[in-house]
Design a protein around this nucleic acid. Structure first.
Lengths: 207, 207
DNA sequence: TAGATTGTTAATCGATTAACAATC
DNA sequence: TAGATTGTTAATCGATTAACAATC
């Protein structure tokens, strides 16, 4: 009975939450596994299995209650309090991500950005305070930050990663196109846009 | 003998190419599977297996020749000619991605951007010409575009996706946090940054 | 040759799917 | 009850890893 959520399972559950939130705004009260499956692009069995992981029970013939399901998903995915996130590298991509997440997720909020450029330190960008990189450990401790986003160029990514781990980061979202070396029990989630684009192009050509 | 590249395999091979390019600039001539494995964050056996897929043979004791390996990878991943890519949705994220890819990949180039905002049409942004959305089919046909990037808000993603498929897109890189419905033989590659951040935070908390 | 690395097979592992009993 | 959907098990599928023979 593998009730611990795996990598892929957590990804799907996070997507379900967003789809359900949309349904809630449209005043939809309950949803069937096959409806959720179609919206998420997975199989209905998959959805039912994921509901098990969330620990939420549906009712035969009536499906899943949208509102209480969102709450159950939140209990699995979210930290007890709102969680503070840091971002390192306020370039084009960093700025776009700050703006992308600004006000979007109620449970995860980017509260500190770091950059070596002195012009950026001490400014507020998209609702996020910007600091010099050397202040990292201090800010992490003050704000209780354990999750960080890396948006620096590939050459600097490993150095930044080491700094983050020293400062106390436990989960890292890495946008730089390199594999990061980290101690065990530190989780790295990679978003490699170049690879993703090459995959889209490759599979578009040869199916 | 599964010599057709799978989803994950293509991702890794694309990453190898970038790591090898760096080595080439440092005048490194040959590389061992375990060195490449460490840089990419995978196992050495995995690397050797992927080399098989690429169809490139290494030499025992001497490893893989960096330069000719890059060429072999290119033959697998790249279209015969340079490939034109389109982007739809010139908001914050779209702009960042245009700038991110500008001059980065020699084989994939974003040559057309689309947006409904009339202020953006007919401008050139990060080396990319911007068009009104209704010109899509026309531009795709002229430029032979078969790969597209979706950076519009979630609510508009499915509509844009339908337009793209009609215009002739075969591979789609989707940044909107929804599952897209497409005909068979159209490949969708999803990049869901919210989900990725939630995964990083979740696994950072509970290992 | 001895040593190190590659190519390749077989075993393992995990995730997905199919099938069906349980439930309202 | 009949019908539809859920919960859960068993079977399938694919990807990863471990092991070893082949090679320079």
């Amino acid at each position: 009975m593998p009730l611990l959520a795996s990598d892929k399972t957590v990804g799907r559950i996070s997507l379900y939450r967003r789809l359900l939130s949309n349904l809630l705004q449209e005043k939809v009260q309950s949803v069937f596994s096959h409806q959720l499956a179609e919206a998420a692009g997975v199989s209905a069995t998959q959805v039912r299995r994921d509901m098990m992981v969330v620990g939420y029970n549906g009712i035969p013939t009536k499906g899943y209650d949208v509102e209480s399901l969102i709450e159950s998903i939140g209990q699995l995915l979210d930290a007890p309090d709102q969680e503070a996130v840091a971002l390192v590298g306020v370039g084009n991509l960093g700025l776009a991500i700050l703006s992308y997440f600004d006000g979007r997720s109620p449970n995860l909020k980017i509260t500190a950005a770091f950059d070596n450029d002195p012009d950026k330190a001490d400014h507020v960008i998209s609702g996020c305070r910007c600091y010099a990189t050397r202040q990292m450990a201090e800010v992490f401790a003050e704000s209780g930050i354990a999750t960080a986003i890396i948006t620096v160029p590939a050459e600097q990514a490993q150095d930044v990663c080491d700094l983050l781990v020293d400062a106390g980061a436990k989960g890292i979202l890495n946008f730089a196109p390199v594999g990061l070396r980290v101690p065990a029990h530190i989780h790295v989630e990679n978003v490699d846009m170049t690879t993703s684009l090459e995959k889209a192009a490759y599979f578009g050509r040869c199916p």
